[in-house]
Simulated scan of single mutants.
Amino acid sequence: MYIGTQREPRHATDFKMLTQFGVRHISLDPPGPWTEWTLEALERHRDEVASHGMILDMIQLPLPSVAVDRAPCADILLAGPERDRQIAGICELIENCARAGIPAAKYNFNYIGIPRSEDEIGRGGARLPSFFWDKMDPDAAPPCEPLEEEEIWERAEYFLRHVVPVATSAKVRLACHPHDPWTPPGYRGVTRILGTFEGMKRFVETHESPYHGLNFCIGTMAENLDAPDAEMDDIIRWFGTRGKLFNIHFRNIQGSKGGFSEVLPDDGDVNMLRVLRVLEEVGYQYMVMPDHVPEIDAVDPEGAAFAFSYGYIAAAIQHAKGA
């Protein structure tokens, strides 16, 4: 395993900074709308990344973490009239990733985005993105017509039935992100199928393939558990021993299911050093990257928090490998 990033470099200096930190692997989308990501566009993008001394490990399929009413391929989630055309476009994109030497693609199957309550104040006055169910509006408007849980499973199964064989043939790993965070069944009209360990297991076992797995977020998994630190190791082992971990979002929380704040990796309730030892134990071999970070008082607040996280991850990987 090795350090990665998904933070988009703003200019050449950011690429240079990343390589100086020892970050050489990146998940980064090509410029422009996804419908313009032809083979030639992917190859140009790969070469541009390489010109800065980095390796393009992954891109995002046009199924991001936003609510479905803002998603570029909403008909896949809504079983709308353009569903098959959108799936065909994604299948072509997966095949072009293989031709361009891009080994993986991440995605979400998300209807309500990433709900949050107001920020909490953390260490030294940092502003912490947070979710406390008792501070949320339980009657918040849904972004689509209400859906039964099994209707969502049917749509996920339909998507996987079409894309997993293509990814398997192309040898491109598909990494789905769990739902962030757990919400009560029926909140905003849906029950989140990837908001529990059992749901995530069912998902990766649907249309089994070594190229169908998870963009596994430690923070999101912790948000879905009653006792995150006590439960995390065995969950990682379950997915890791089955070869279902294709990317790691390395972030920590204070709290648990129904109430938490996102913090820097050394400041939360999950022992992140132990997490990396378990990942080493199960033979995990891909990127470990920062994800959400607190708002830090700095000239470049997000950049400062990410820099801290890269350093922590670098040291933690050395520790996990016994260096």
Rank of each mutant, 00 (worst) to 15 (best):
residue 106 K to H: 13
residue 289 M to S: 15
residue 220 T to R: 07
residue 206 T to D: 11
residue 116 R to G: 01
residue 117 S to P: 05
residue 205 E to A: 14
residue 102 I to V: 14
residue 293 V to P: 10
residue 18 L to P: 12
residue 28 L to W: 09
residue 322 G to K: 11
residue 295 E to T: 09
residue 170 A to L: 07
residue 318 Q to E: 15
residue 146 P to I: 00
residue 117 S to F: 05
residue 192 R to L: 06
residue 90 I to N: 04
residue 51 S to V: 12
residue 169 S to N: 08
residue 264 L to H: 12
residue 172 V to C: 09
residue 69 D to Y: 04
residue 47 D to V: 00
residue 42 L to D: 13
residue 85 R to E: 14
residue 316 A to V: 14
residue 229 D to R: 02
residue 78 L to G: 01
residue 258 G to W: 14
residue 134 D to F: 06
residue 36 E to Y: 10
residue 15 F to S: 01
residue 65 S to C: 12
residue 60 Q to Y: 13
residue 63 L to N: 04
residue 83 R to N: 05
residue 90 I to Y: 01
residue 246 F to C: 05
residue 322 G to C: 10
residue 22 G to V: 02
residue 164 V to R: 09
residue 194 L to E: 03
residue 23 V to R: 04
residue 251 R to M: 05
residue 256 S to M: 15
residue 31 P to A: 13
residue 252 N to S: 05
residue 69 D to V: 03
residue 11 H to F: 12
residue 172 V to Q: 07
residue 76 I to T: 00
residue 203 F to W: 14
residue 39 L to Y: 12
residue 304 A to M: 02
residue 5 T to I: 14
residue 87 I to E: 04
residue 116 R to C: 13
residue 104 A to E: 11
residue 115 P to L: 10
residue 105 A to T: 12
residue 91 C to S: 07
residue 138 P to H: 08
residue 230 A to F: 03
residue 23 V to H: 04
residue 142 P to E: 00
residue 117 S to Q: 02
residue 184 P to M: 01
residue 176 C to H: 12
residue 7 R to V: 14
residue 215 N to R: 01
residue 110 N to Y: 05
residue 317 I to Q: 09
residue 73 C to M: 06
residue 126 A to E: 15
residue 90 I to C: 02
residue 164 V to D: 09
residue 271 N to C: 10
residue 257 K to Q: 11
residue 163 V to M: 04
residue 184 P to Q: 00
residue 177 H to C: 08
residue 228 P to R: 09
residue 207 H to T: 10
residue 98 A to G: 01
residue 294 P to Q: 00
residue 195 G to Q: 03
residue 217 C to R: 11
residue 70 R to F: 14
residue 242 R to L: 08
residue 53 G to S: 00
residue 153 W to P: 10
residue 305 A to S: 03
residue 137 D to Y: 10
residue 159 F to P: 01
residue 128 L to Y: 07
residue 78 L to Y: 04
residue 267 D to G: 02
residue 156 A to S: 14
residue 185 P to S: 03
residue 316 A to K: 09
residue 290 P to L: 09
residue 290 P to I: 07
residue 24 R to G: 03
residue 165 P to I: 05
residue 13 T to Q: 15
residue 125 G to R: 11
residue 95 E to L: 01
residue 104 A to P: 11
residue 75 D to W: 05
